[in-house]
Amino acid sequence: MHPLRGHRSYLAFLGHRLSGLALAVFLPCHFLALGLALEGAEALDRFLIFAELPLVKAAEWGLVVLLALHLFFGLRVLALEFTPWPSRTDPRLAWIVPGGAAALVVGLVFLVQVV
């Protein structure tokens, strides 16, 4: 990574924005899949069988982690923009690592439920 950007605040920005972009790409596919129900049970069942494939499940785990990451990093952005900072140079840096860890915990819970 470029030395200009190798710090926690920038990594949190990247995590928040890239997870948001990934979710934006995922959502139309999600709605398209849900829309299959309108075409009848057979089309939806075919998709649901496809969704049980291990690779798709792994991708689903990734999406759950990204969603949680987006949520926790988004809460940090709201906190740093709407509440006073702990110090002038501390944009809630202490929230970043726990936020990432919490996203992984959510991913773990998903994994336990699936396996």
């Binding site: 950007r5 710090h7 605040s9 920038y10 920005f13 924005r17 002038r88 140079t89 944009p91």
Partner: peptide, 19 residues
């Protein structure tokens, strides 16, 4: 502003433009 924090990290007089 995307709150990346590069400004505050590099300010030589330790101001916090981000804040």
């Amino acid at each position: 502003c995307h709150s990346q924090g590069n400004c505050t990290r590099h300010c030589p007089v330790e101001l916090s433009p981000s804040e």
